[in-house]
Design a binder for these strands. Structure first.
Lengths: 236, 236
DNA sequence: TACCATTTGTTGAACATTCATTCAGTATGG
DNA sequence: CCATACTGAATGAATGTTCAACAAATGGTA
């Protein structure tokens, strides 16, 4: 329900489009580009602005400037500021979704591998970087008061959560753990989101590597039989 | 460093002031009130507005209306909108800080009890309710682009984190666990923040009780010798 | 107590700025 | 030369801030 049914075709085609948008950096200005390329270009500029200035300071002018185009351009391709932002969120959501689905597929059939792949995917550089994390957080901050965002913003949505629960259930059986799968899945996914939040704040020494380490540690203690602890690496 | 050194006196006195501000609901309008009461009243109205409308839609007019006062009043008590928001954030931070310190003190000397008390404090109704969570998240969304917020927003700040690390270190020794205390502390505190985020979104069935359950489950698996699992409560 | 002066808190209209949106006009590719 | 993409100045609405006027408290004086 949360996820619009959109063939994966667009997801991959979009990458190609964006690529071409990047390549023709010199041609952007003044030259005509296909509607789709322009829209992606504007969405990228929106993410830039969100990351740099925050939601409340993101203006149409800044987006247009960021894309190297004129002021009226956004209202031409998107009807309004609101629709631009929704399209941006949708774009990020699609990208995120495609990313973890891909990781899951590559992981093979072993549930333990699948869970680990999902966790690792969350801290992949293509997904988990300051720019995108900042943009996500900008939307989260507004989500509560905007139903449209609320539906989209829970990136780790019902489907994602269900997969987590299923994996936890399977592991529980094969490892004879005592916990409630739903509870453990909640703890795990919440921790992933929390780590994102900390990475975004970026004040401390928390890095992508540290975050992944913490997440892996969680897996080790929660599913010791499936993820034998690699502890003892560094002991101060 | 993050926390302004402010005697606890104000923290408790403030509660009393706010109480009196609530009681004299009828007298608010037209009657004079002490400077501190007015400021608290405006801060509360700001939190209301943040929770209801989100950061970007929170206006001076809305705050003034919410407090039942005139338009110019905020600029009289606080110099500007920015300063009002900073004062609001500072207020929430002080409240949060006082709350967990209090919980920690009440917990006694046992590290396991202390850690559990800290976790439970995070989901106390006085701290963890939709209104305040929404306000926190509104600030988080803007924190990256505003240094002032960034410094304050890491509510679970360096001090808090240090305490977590210390407790994890102690438990590790007394329980002969294998993990790195810093890593485990990061996982734990990130999970708490993530649970807050989910509670704020409030889309799903995640409640304060569920969140606390998940956090407790984490403690059980991470420190099995200190928190013997209470599993088996409900088995579907 | 009565009276006035001064300080302090409050109001609301006026002002200036910022910003999303519109649209008539321009340029470009086919 | 038509259709489509694009421009950028004009417009109007929203909003933070200022300020002159007003009211309530305070304090001093007789």
């Amino acid at each position: 329900m949360l996820e619009t049914i959109r063939p994966m075709k667009t997801a991959v085609a979009r990458e190609a489009l964006l690529e071409s948008a990047r390549k023709s950096e010199a041609e952007k200005r003044g030259r005509k580009a296909s509607k789709e390329v322009r829209q992606l270009q504007l969405i990228e500029a929106t993410i830039d602005s969100l990351a740099k200035r925050g939601y409340s300071e993101t203006t149409m002018a800044d987006v247009a400037d960021g894309a190297g185009l004129s002021r009226g351009i956004v209202n031409f391709h998107f009807e309004s500021k609101e629709k631009l932002l929704i399209a941006t969120l949708q774009h990020m959501y699609d990208e995120y979704s495609a990313h973890w689905r891909n990781a899951l597929q590559k992981a093979g059939d072993d549930p333990a591998d699948q869970l680990q792949a999902l966790v690792a995917a969350d801290f992949d550089r293509s997904i988990c970087n300051k720019r995108k994390l900042a943009a996500w957080c900008a939307f989260w901050g507004e989500a509560k008061s905007r139903p449209t965002y609320q539906a989209l913003s829970s990136a780790r949505d019902a489907v994602y959560q269900t997969i987590f629960i299923d994996l936890c259930t399977t592991l529980r059986q094969s490892g004879s753990y005592a916990y409630e799968p739903q509870v453990m899945a909640l703890a795990l996914s919440a921790m992933l989101e929390g780590l994102w939040l900390r990475l975004m704040m970026g004040t401390e020494d928390t890095t992508r590597e540290t975050a992944l380490l913490a997440a892996s540690e969680f897996l080790s203690v929660a599913f010791p039989k499936h993820y034998p602890s690699k502890a003892g690496a560094t002991k101060p």
